[in-house]
């Protein structure tokens, strides 16, 4: 094959069987060559410096730390290295952790090896972008109503606040004590991260908890 020089790959995972499986997958596909394997963050850093790989594929949970530390370190050292985070952990915070650390792609360990290869290919082409399965879903979950979640009662209180009612008026309207109304209000401020009424109303409108139409 008259292909250009294959892309060098460094595998970082403390499980040898995983490394073997991935190495086989990379060797099988065109354009990659596994140049090194590491089992820890420390080894990974040392080998990355020594071998200067085009792509690093790393696990998150490693014996001497988290793979995200390795990612951060690599990204700080180089803007061009492709980094694929491979993990067994589920949960959006893992994905966002990888994104924030500077990874180029995020793949779960239940995905077939072709997905890992595809992610490595993407990472080598555009290391400063980010690819992950269901990235859009995760973004939506992060931005949409799940952010601040108000209870039915708190939403009611928020609406009355937006109408310009005072604590006493709110408590009369909802048939609760003033201290209860105050508690609801402080809870709303807390959930929205607001310091005062005006801020709370602004944030609520922005995050879709209140419509900004005139009431």
């Amino acid at each position: 094959m008259s292909a250009p020089e294959p892309l060098s790959v460094l595998l970082v995972d403390d499980h040898e069987l995983i490394r073997q499986g991935l190495a086989r997958a990379f060797e099988r596909s065109e354009g990659f060559s596994v140049v090194g394997e590491a089992g820890s963050v420390k080894e990974g850093i040392a080998l990355a410096e020594e071998l200067d790989p085009a792509v690093v594929v790393t696990d998150v949970r490693l014996p001497d730390g988290t793979g995200l530390d390795l990612v951060r370190h690599l990204r700080q050292a180089s803007d061009t290295v492709g980094i694929v985070v491979l993990t067994m952990y589920a949960g959006d915070d893992q994905l966002f952790g990888a994104l924030e650390a500077g990874a180029s792609a995020f793949v779960a360990k239940d995905s077939p090896s072709d997905d890992v290869i595809a992610a490595a290919r993407h990472a080598s082409v555009s290391p400063r972008s980010f690819a992950a399965a269901d990235l859009a879903g995760a973004m939506r979950r992060r931005l949409s109503p799940s952010g601040p979640q108000l209870s039915a009662r708190e939403t009611e209180v928020l609406k009355l606040l937006a109408e310009g009612l005072g604590v006493a008026a709110i408590s009369r309207q909802l048939f609760v004590s003033e201290s209860t109304a105050k508690t609801h209000i402080s809870k709303i401020y807390e959930k929205l991260g607001a310091a005062n009424r005006a801020q709370a109303i602004m944030i609520a409108i922005r995050s879709g908890l209140l419509s900004d139409e005139p009431l």
């Binding site: 499980h15 069987l17 995983i18 073997q20 499986g21 991935l22 086989r24 997958a25 099988r28 067994m88 360990k109 239940d110 077939p112 090896s113 072709d114």
Partner: peptide, 12 residues
């Protein structure tokens, strides 16, 4: 991890 690596083996 063991089952995941079996998966890679089957892929191969």
């Amino acid at each position: 991890q063991e089952i995941a690596s079996l998966g890679y083996l089957v892929d191969d």
